[in-house]
Amino acid sequence: MRYSPTTSKTKNAPLALNASYSRKKRLRANLTGYAFISPFVIGFLAFTFIPMLVSLYLSFTKYNLFADPVWIGTDNYVKMFTGDANYLNSVKVTFIYVFVGVPLRLAFALAVAMILNSKSRMVGFYRTIYYLPSIIGGSVAVSIMWRNIFSNEGIVNSALNLLGIPNVSWFGNPNASVFMLVTLSVWQFGSSMLIFLAGLKNISQEMYEAASVDGAGAVPKFFKITLPLLSSVVLFNMIMQTIGAFMTFVPAYIISKGEGGPLGGTMLYSLYLFRQAFMFSNMGYASAMAWIMLLFVGVLTGILFKTSKAWVFYESEGGR
């Protein structure tokens, strides 16, 4: 596209194609291109890349925002893994949240997508309805609503009371509270569902017809046709959702009123990072935490890509 102003001319004047002239032209064309992407590049450098470098530096310092940073080497990293039980707890809680929540959410999204893939008159309506929670999904309002639904006097407990079951303190139980966050995340399945739905539409009906002729039931069809042909979509969703889940902050912050309680049961990694940074003014430590998370998510994503060769099926590559 970026050569388009020049191509028409060069076509008509092949003699002008000497080396230096074309280099100049190309440079100008490139500069135009760079000018067009400069808003992103400048924004990326100023608001992402440079802050990242600063945060890398800060992670080796003790910094409370008031006094100048003091270089302390790898102390922050050492403390994280040897001297901070709360940190290890937040890692544990986050792992539960991610490794239970993401598969559940994907399974749920796929199930709903398959239901909505059927041909029915109301399907467009249902698609919209099921997608709604995701639009408002990560927002503060939903978290507050979730807290109210499961609060002591909330609608769930009131319903239980009607059935003669005493109140359950959903968010009050230190071991169960993280699963309340998981259910909230499962409920926000809409965006994965849409992607699954698009993937399902791409699977040719002929395969199913052929399988039916061979006498295959619904279950073999799912495992032999749907899942393999959808595996690339599964991979995409899995990576996006995993990264997103590691960074979950809002529901934990709202539901635990910023404290990650009870007993650190909802202390997700980002929440603990946030508390270290903005409540305890340990900016250096928080930066170190951010880098560990970055490295971990990077490595995990790398592993997912590596293993994907074994289970992801690309039709375009002839099944390799």
């Binding site: 608001f47 945060s55 902050f249 980002s270 940074a277 928080a286 994503t301």
Partner: peptide
């Protein structure tokens, strides 16, 4: 792909901090 993934996740993770700033 790996590099893209790394950069994506890096940007996402760090946007936490830069967002606040």
């Amino acid at each position: 792909k790996k590099a893209a993934g790394l950069i994506t996740s890096a940007a996402l993770v760090l946007s936490l901090l830069s967002g606040c700033g």
